[in-house]
Design a protein around this nucleic acid. Sequence first.
DNA 1: GATTGTGAAGCCCTTCACAGCA
DNA 2: TGCTGTGAAGGGCTTCACAATC
Lengths: 264, 264
Amino acid sequence: MATGRTHRPATRSRGIPEATVARLPLYLRALTALSERSVPTVSSEELAAAAGVNSAKLRKDFSYLGSYGTRGVGYDVEYLVYQISRELGLTQDWPVVIVGIGNLGAALAGYGGFASRGFRVAALIDADPAMTGKPVAGIPVQHSDDLEKIISEDGVSIGVIATPAGVAQQVCDRLVAAGVTSILNFAPTVLSVPDGVDVRKVDLSIELQILAFHEQRKAGEEAGAESGPEAGTETGAPTAPPAARTGGSSRKGPDGDVPAVMPA
Amino acid sequence: MATGRTHRPATRSRGIPEATVARLPLYLRALTALSERSVPTVSSEELAAAAGVNSAKLRKDFSYLGSYGTRGVGYDVEYLVYQISRELGLTQDWPVVIVGIGNLGAALAGYGGFASRGFRVAALIDADPAMTGKPVAGIPVQHSDDLEKIISEDGVSIGVIATPAGVAQQVCDRLVAAGVTSILNFAPTVLSVPDGVDVRKVDLSIELQILAFHEQRKAGEEAGAESGPEAGTETGAPTAPPAARTGGSSRKGPDGDVPAVMPA
DNA sequence: GATTGTGAAGCCCTTCACAGCA
DNA sequence: TGCTGTGAAGGGCTTCACAATC
């Protein structure tokens, strides 16, 4: 998951659990598809299947928004689309700026999923003077010197950071100082922000690493047993075993009390 | 968060909680940075700060891997880097294919964070014949007709889908049939896969929608009270109030029992 | 009869707080 | 003395299962 940090655990906002909020866009997408096919109503079971969750969870989620369904019938598609959109704040226009127009920033600039959800790319910003004025996805890139001016003039409150990791924090600081209060961070760094600012991060390599973990697990399972994730070779062995390893007293180690690989 | 689905809740693998696995890459990055600065040891407090988590959580996480620290001292940086890498399966080489070489696919192809973590882009695949042979990020694009051959020849087990939503499921099916067992999905669709295949998704517009939700909440808080998220205008009002609304018996509605906006 | 809405139970994760160890 | 490793407590989310409702 990409998760923000500053999330006022107090107040509980209006009581909608964060996990539920994170699924609302999923439901919304499924409902939009149904709406386009002019399906009038949908049951929790059907909608849950379309959104890839189970129906009890979906009903519980919707119960936080209010009682929008009809027992024995299901949910009115159009009405739910509206309610969820409103709950998510998508009935208003959100100008966003994208900072860092490299490959990724350019891809984001051209991403159709933004505009269709009420997000308007208000500006593309890059530090490279050679980029200034060049149109990307139909929008001229502006120089980062003008960052503050752009933010305040357009009333931008959401910023997307797609810069190299090295400059992400300073870009973040400038965005926040200029009035941005929500940040979507693609740079592989931990950003620190003051209270009241939300950060969500998307880290491509982290997702792959998580997949690799499970992939390795699978490979181990089917192979039966082999003492460790990569037994024979000892590739690029640990550079520095810690002091503790020599004692060998009570440590459980990686494969201590449980066979590393289940023998079937 | 981007979360996979098929996750065998049984067997519990080797007992490392999913939440912990998701943080290991974070720790690894922080440790790598320390390693490059030749820092020999680090305390849970310091490392936690660098990774943006709290220290109790970090210690608990590490405790699932084994006792790799030294009381009164901290953790050996190099040793931890190795242990976490091994746990994540990064000590081996993971060939990946990227399917769908549009803006996003191209950006992914050139993303440096992959190679540095042991992920090797084995092939770029696109359905457009005009793309075939064209080098992207130094790698020639191959036609999707050859997908199965590429997967099996290179022993690819991880696939990245960056195609339009409409074809994502069929691409997914072909990848799985060809032997891929982990998929990172950037297409805004729910993929269904057989047991044993892991899917993680990254959805750019969902992240923004979650930010918008909190952003709206903030705007409401500072504005005092105003009856609803966007009061005056009634922009694009609900197309179809559901049957239930007329009865008006027990429904709580969106702003029923709690003021939509806290009055200070 | 069908399907929602929801208390209650269970599970997982986080946090606390301190014993154990270097 | 300082910091890790971990039992125990606490909190949030998911799942169950069924009463309420159309």
